[in-house]
Design a protein around this nucleic acid. Structure first.
Lengths: 137, 137
DNA sequence: TATTGTTATACTCTATAACTATA
DNA sequence: TATAGTTATAGAGTATAACAATA
């Protein structure tokens, strides 16, 4: 087993654990059923809003056709707004609604709980290092 | 944005990059079309074989019904064998075939290339630290 | 009663290509 | 020609529950 392969497997396992925990506990805070990917999209949009669809797509590393449907779902559920860009007719600008922000508060709380649980084996130094390393990637 | 949430988002982004790179380059080495999850299963099984289905399922953090189908697919394609356990009639023991091992050589090579590319921004120290931290999780 | 593994089913996520409208 | 976004569609991955066989 080479190191690079092991690293990929371990990253996958970590992500699976995060996803499984979130899936198990999300229903309690997600009556609108935006789903895990919807939650990720709201979190990511919060970092950059207001922003064109394309910026959110790139930042999430997902496919643009997938994002179209995801964004329409979030719009239908009142979590974000789509506004045509004045300067470029091809572009749609996304922004969170108050309902989107309210849901984000709950999502962040849940994320924080889940991550605290998963990162429990690490001391403060390791957590800082992990954050630093992921930030550089 | 709290730290725990950021960490989860960054882990997701990292995993997405790994998956996208693998998906893009896998067809060249995967004529049998075991797919990314199939590849992960072979890599994981290689760590513990021979092993009962249940052990592989736990280690991959996936659902057991999902694993049944995945394992049958890999068996059909000649990558692993399913043998009834002599001591416990409920258990099936999984082992890689020569074809499975041969494919693994290619998968590891590809994984190594992809991870080398993705981990490029990190120096040797960071890589060692990241491996250590993930190992502890 | 509990566990291993299977089947069925519904749902979510992903990838591809063809399309429009603007630039 | 190129880019932003949409639509259609097929395929891959996930979650749940009900089930048979064995312990």
């Amino acid at each position: 087993m080479n190191d690079a392969t092991l690293l990929a497997l371990e990253t996958d396992r970590l992500m699976r654990r995060i996803e499984a925990q979130l899936a198990r506990r999300a229903p309690a805070i997600d009556p609108a059923k935006v789903g895990p990917l919807g939650g990720m999209a709201l979190l990511t949009l919060a970092e950059i809003e207001p922003a064109p669809t394309q910026a959110l797509t790139t930042r999430m590393g997902r496919d643009k056709s997938q994002m179209t449907r995801l964004i329409h779902m979030l719009e239908t559920k009142g979590m974000l707004t789509r506004t045509p860009c004045e300067r470029d007719g091809r572009v749609t600008i996304l922004a969170l609604t108050p309902a989107g922000h309210a849901l984000l508060v709950e999502i962040r709380k849940l994320m924080s709980e889940v991550m605290t649980e998963i990162l429990e084996p690490l001391d403060a130094n390791d957590r800082r290092r992990l954050a630093g390393i992921l930030g550089r990637l």
